[in-house]
Amino acid sequence: MTLFGGIEAGGTKFVCAIGSGPNDIRAETRFPTTQPGETIEQAISFFQSQICQFGPLAAIGIASFGPVDPNPASATFGHITTTPKPGWAHTDLVGPIQQVLNLPIGFDTDVNGAALAEGRWGAAQGLDNFIYLTIGTGIGGGVMGNGRLLHGLIHPEMGHIPLPHDWEKDPFPGNCPYHSDCFEGMAAGPAIEKRWQSKGQHLPPNHPAWELEAHYIALALRSFICTLSPQRIILGGGVMEQAQLFPLVRQKTQATLNGYVQSPAILNQIDSYIVPPKLGSRAGVLGAIALAMAAI
């Protein structure tokens, strides 16, 4: 069986694996994201050792935190660009790995990778148009449009759209270093912690944080539904592990759309329209493997 390598390059940790899909992961490792040289070298060493054990790989996929340059025609293809993560701005991820391993490499954002995996094996199988959003340390989105990942100028930055901000009800100024009260600045995990002085996982299910969180997510989903017309929306990431959020987000999304989008998926089947990822926490590394498959 043809084997592929995958790297989920996260801002907190790297996850590396080889295999051919959800039911065939031959080896996997994870390690903290430290400095670029050290972290990339650990990834290379993992693949070198696994190739010795399992044989050659057909390609490697990298699904990375961003922003990134995913354009193969660009001089900075494979680079992380303007990330606020210390030491990682303008880091070449693809070059050092390709130089040592000499394999085709598929490269994209972590959320585009996860979207690709959910479309191939997960909650969006059979759909040509859908969104994958991760709401955690940051907020990012991957878009599948007419069966292809959306890129364009660079790639979607769905966490940085502006949202209506009622300063009287929510005086929190936002937490984004670029845009203050954008979607990520108001609703990502660090924003929850800064606003309420407690990490989200320590807040009880009936805490007012979750009504406010669902409000901001619903406002963002209204914009995405009206602009991208997805057939399904998948919400992943650590914040969405709060079980009480999905019913609140569904209800508030219906309310903020106010009947404008006359689709049974929204009006009558919202529980199967806004859904968690079927692949769970494995969506990222499986997305990297899916990117590797697409690279050959």
Score class of each variant (00 low, 15 high):
residue 39 T to Q: 01
residue 83 T to D: 06
residue 148 R to Q: 10
residue 52 C to W: 00
residue 95 G to A: 09
residue 83 T to A: 07
residue 32 P to T: 09
residue 135 I to E: 11
residue 163 L to T: 03
residue 21 G to K: 07
residue 28 E to N: 01
residue 20 S to V: 00
residue 77 F to D: 02
residue 211 E to W: 08
residue 15 V to N: 10
residue 107 F to Q: 02
residue 65 F to Y: 11
residue 122 G to I: 05
residue 216 Y to F: 15
residue 73 A to G: 10
residue 4 F to I: 03
residue 217 I to W: 05
residue 20 S to D: 10
residue 293 M to C: 12
residue 6 G to L: 06
residue 15 V to Q: 15
residue 36 P to D: 04
residue 176 C to Q: 06
residue 46 F to A: 07
residue 233 I to M: 12
residue 286 L to E: 05
residue 236 G to E: 06
residue 14 F to N: 04
residue 193 E to N: 14
residue 275 V to W: 09
residue 5 G to H: 06
residue 107 F to V: 02
residue 11 G to Q: 13
residue 222 R to P: 06
residue 89 A to Q: 14
residue 201 Q to T: 13
residue 57 L to A: 00
residue 197 Q to F: 13
residue 11 G to R: 11
residue 101 L to W: 07
residue 225 I to F: 14
residue 213 E to R: 05
residue 286 L to K: 04
residue 83 T to E: 09
residue 4 F to Q: 02
residue 288 A to S: 08
residue 98 Q to R: 15
residue 71 N to G: 05
residue 243 A to D: 14
residue 154 I to S: 13
residue 177 P to L: 10
residue 121 W to C: 13
residue 111 V to L: 09
residue 116 L to T: 01
residue 116 L to Q: 05
residue 234 I to M: 00
residue 59 A to S: 14
residue 52 C to I: 00
residue 185 G to V: 07
residue 294 A to I: 05
residue 108 D to A: 15
residue 34 T to M: 09
residue 191 A to F: 04
residue 92 D to L: 00
residue 212 L to Q: 07
residue 118 E to R: 10
residue 219 L to P: 06
residue 7 I to V: 11
residue 245 L to M: 01
residue 9 A to K: 00
residue 285 V to D: 10
residue 233 I to S: 09
residue 250 R to L: 09
residue 98 Q to K: 15
residue 46 F to I: 07
residue 50 Q to C: 06
residue 67 P to E: 04
residue 104 P to V: 03
residue 148 R to V: 01
residue 99 Q to L: 04
residue 30 R to Y: 06
residue 60 I to S: 05
residue 41 E to H: 11
residue 141 G to L: 01
residue 225 I to C: 11
residue 1 M to L: 13
residue 182 C to D: 02
residue 96 P to S: 15
residue 141 G to F: 03
residue 199 K to W: 07
residue 139 I to Y: 08
residue 231 Q to M: 08
residue 241 E to H: 13
residue 87 G to L: 09
residue 11 G to N: 14
residue 2 T to Q: 02
residue 116 L to M: 14
residue 170 D to E: 10
residue 285 V to S: 15
residue 30 R to A: 15
